[in-house]
Simulated scan of single mutants.
Amino acid sequence: MGTTQLETVPEPKYLHLKTVLSEALDSEFSVGEILPNERDLAARFGVARATLRQALEQLELEGRLQRRRGVGTTVAPPRVGVALGTGRQTWPGTGDDAWQPMDCERAVPPAPVAAALDTGTDEVHLVRRFRMSQGRRVATELLYIPAASVPDLSAIDAPSGPARARAVLRELQRLELDRQDRAVELGSAGAEDAKELDRLPGSPVLVVTTRFTVRGRTAALGVATYRADTCRLTFGDTPDVEIHHDPERRAS
């Protein structure tokens, strides 16, 4: 790596440095590669370490970098595409579903979920799943499934765990799905989600709520929490469209 000095620019120095660093990531580093330490980077670009940290923090928020305990700052893999509005109607756990079941238990859902499912204070099946990408957990999901949607579970022996979760999803797939509707909002990670996703509490997340409808009633409700720094939303039937960080490049 050569030496590059920043010229005087009208924008804040850390924002200009972020642009310069982003170009260096595209041209000089590969996914998973560890960046030089802060002292060396600050010397290369002729900035104070405080300015460098601001730029690195911005790149981390944008998902270009990730900081790993005991490893350092590495180049992050591409973001995971979260497909929305494609018209594809499928039950969770069907086909090439990227989610992995973690657990299943009976629980009374939060009041807003109970109202959406029209279950009152009755317990529902709560399926917990997670999604991995490039060896890291990028999302967790809670699936709330009323007992009425999976009435034949009494013959299944597994009381909890991944086996129970898979059994619940198999029974759910016996129903004829009318439609699924999704809503997305930006949120902040609570203590439990932060622990599951290896983020600090309050870190930005994308919350995707999916309602599965059968014969005009809500048969299941899913609440998925994605790390905002590792995921991107996709619409339509072309999820592989990617915009390069260099604005002069074309989308591929």
Rank of each mutant, 00 (worst) to 15 (best):
P162E: 08
W91F: 07
R69W: 02
T74M: 12
L143N: 02
Y144A: 08
R88N: 07
L143V: 04
Y144S: 10
T140W: 02
A76K: 04
S149K: 02
W99T: 11
R137H: 02
L153F: 13
L84S: 02
D152V: 05
A163W: 02
R131W: 12
T73S: 06
R88G: 00
P146F: 01
F130C: 12
L65V: 08
R166H: 08
T121D: 14
V75H: 06
T121F: 05
E57P: 05
V124N: 05
L56S: 01
L61R: 11
V124T: 11
R79E: 08
I145Y: 05
G72E: 09
S160Y: 09
A155D: 14
E60S: 11
R137G: 01
A165F: 06
I145S: 03
R68I: 15
G70N: 07
Y144I: 01
D152L: 12
A158T: 04
Q100K: 14
A98E: 13
R106C: 00
P77L: 03
W99M: 10
P146K: 07
G161H: 04
A76R: 06
P151E: 04
A107V: 09
R68K: 13
A83T: 14
G70C: 10
V80E: 04
D103G: 02
L59D: 06
R129V: 12
P110Y: 03
G120A: 12
T74Y: 00
D118N: 13
V138D: 09
G87M: 02
S133A: 15
A148N: 08
L56M: 10
V138G: 04
R164N: 03
D97N: 08
G63P: 09
L61G: 00
T86R: 14
R166W: 01
R64A: 13
P92T: 11
V113W: 08
T119E: 10
V80G: 00
G81R: 15
A163H: 11
G81D: 11
V80D: 03
L126G: 03
Q134G: 06
M132V: 09
S149R: 00
D122C: 02
A115T: 12
Q100R: 15
R166M: 12
T119H: 04
A155N: 07
A163R: 14
C104G: 07
C104D: 11
A116E: 15
L142V: 05
G93V: 06
G120K: 06
D97Y: 02
Q100E: 15
L142E: 14
G120P: 10
A147C: 00
S133M: 10
A147T: 06
H125P: 04
D157I: 12
L65Y: 06
R67G: 10
L59H: 04
D157N: 10
P78Y: 01
P151F: 08
V71R: 14
A139L: 08
T90G: 00
A98K: 07
Y144E: 04
L59V: 07
I145P: 01
